[in-house]
Each structure stands twice: as structure tokens, then as C-alpha cells.
Simulated assay, not measured.
Amino acid sequence: MTPSTPPRADPAERSRAIVDAARRVAETEGWSAVTVRRLAAEIGFSQPILYRNFPGGRDEIVEQVMIEGFAAMADELADPVGEGDRLAHVVHTYLAFAQTHPALYEAMFEARTRIVFATVQTPEPLRAAFGAFLRAVSAAGMAEQEAVVRAELLWSTLHGVARLAASERLDPALEQARLGAIIALFVS
């Protein structure tokens, strides 16, 4: 028998269940295990119900995971309360986020999507996360273009460190020295 959705299920609740199931499967088995068929079986919905909520199928589901991931990252990267060092906060928080949420991080940065970065069409959660980098590297009197380039370089540096650390290509004994060096590179 084909699973089906309860007739009165709220579309927002169905979407939430689908996205949560995608993250759960990815966290335990990797993104290759996330298929529409697998998600339907996982949550007891029929495949047509999944496509009704996400007409773009798996790719659209992963995009939603990605957007939610950037929203969560933006929240964590937000200016620290009572702390004055935004740069150190961004460096430490970003790398901790990547380490704590490896499947989510992979979806955010390595999944092929239709989402465009660095344009007016970029979804707000992505712009909010980038805003934390921008605030961390901006200095009084700095030209906007220079600040954006520095923010992109900080983000790129941290992404490289996060990926190399995840694949155990960096010496863990050097972590504090590495973080200190990154911060020193970007101090205004």
C-alpha cells in the first residue's frame, strides 16, 4: 500500500516534515541517500504529496534545507552579546557550526542549487549570514568594495579550513594557533 498524507495535514507541516526528514537521512546516511522515494517512505507520505509541496523534487528540498541552514548560521553568527570581538566570534562560531552540522554544512556549500549568491535575488538568510562576515571585517572609513572583498576572503578561508578539518587534513594540535593566525590576517 502506498503511504499517504492525512487529508487534513497542513501544507506547512508537511513541508516541515519533509525538510526535517531530509536532514535526518543526510545526517545518518549522507546526501546520496536523500531521494524523494526515500523521504516518502521515511515520513509516510506518497511521492506525489512530496512533489505537491516541492515541485522541484529533491533539489528543491535540498535548497530549503540550505536556506534554513543559512538562517541558523546567521543566528549563531549574529553579533555576540557583551562581547567586543566580532571577528573572533565569527571565526570560532563558523568553524564550530561546520563541525557540529556536517550534513547541513555540506548542503549549504556543496549542493548544486538554483540559488544565486551575491545578487539581489540572494535569499535573505544567505545575505544575513554574509552580513556577519562583513561586520566582522569592516573598519571605519573602509570602502564598501574593500569590505566586501575582505568578507569574501574571510568566508573562503574559513570554508577551506572547515573542509580540510572535516577530512582530517589539518593537525588538530595547531587549531588554536591556526585560529589566531586567521584572526590576525583580518584585523583591521
Results as ranks from 00 to 15, higher is better:
Leu153His: 15
Leu95Tyr: 12
Val148His: 13
Pro123Asn: 02
Met66Arg: 14
Val90Lys: 07
Phe133Ile: 01
Pro125Thr: 01
Ala78Thr: 02
Glu68Val: 03
Ala74Pro: 04
Val120Ile: 05
Glu83Met: 03
Ile115Asp: 03
Ala98Gly: 12
Ala72Cys: 00
Thr93Ser: 11
Phe97Leu: 08
Ile67Thr: 13
Thr100Met: 00
Ala118His: 13
Ser138Glu: 13
Ala136Ser: 15
Met142Cys: 09
Asp79Arg: 15
Arg127Trp: 03
His92Asp: 15
Glu110Arg: 15
Glu68Gln: 12
Glu124Leu: 07
Gln145Met: 13
Leu134Cys: 13
Phe70Met: 03
Thr122His: 04
Leu154Gly: 06
Leu87Asn: 09
Leu95Ile: 10
Val148Ser: 10
Ala129Gly: 04
Arg112Met: 04
Glu110Phe: 15
Ala103Leu: 01
Arg127Thr: 12
Ala143His: 15
Met108Asn: 04
Thr122Glu: 08
Met66Ser: 12
Thr113His: 08
Ala107Asp: 06
Ile115Glu: 04
Ala118Tyr: 15
Gln121Arg: 15
Thr93Val: 04
Thr122Cys: 05
Ala129Asp: 04
Arg114Leu: 08
Glu83Tyr: 00
Thr113Asn: 09
Ala98Val: 08
Ala103Gln: 00
Asp85Val: 01
Arg86Cys: 10
Val90Ile: 08
Pro125Asn: 03
Thr122Tyr: 02
Thr122Phe: 01
Arg86Lys: 12
Arg114Phe: 02
Tyr105Val: 07
Leu77Ser: 08
Leu104Trp: 09
Glu68Pro: 05
Glu68Phe: 03
Val148Asn: 12
Ala88Phe: 01
Glu152Cys: 14
Ala129Pro: 03
Glu76Thr: 01
Ala98Ile: 10
Leu153Cys: 15
Met73Asn: 01
Val137Phe: 12
Ala88Val: 08
Ser138Asn: 08
Val116Ser: 06
Val91Arg: 05
Thr93Gln: 04
Trp155Arg: 15
Phe130Thr: 05
Phe117Ala: 07
Pro80Thr: 04
Pro123Val: 03
Ala139Trp: 05
Ala96Gln: 14
Ala71Leu: 00
Gly84Arg: 11
Gln145Ile: 13
Tyr94Gly: 05
Val90Ala: 06
Glu68Met: 02
Asp75Thr: 13
Val90Trp: 06
Glu83Leu: 09
Glu144Asp: 15
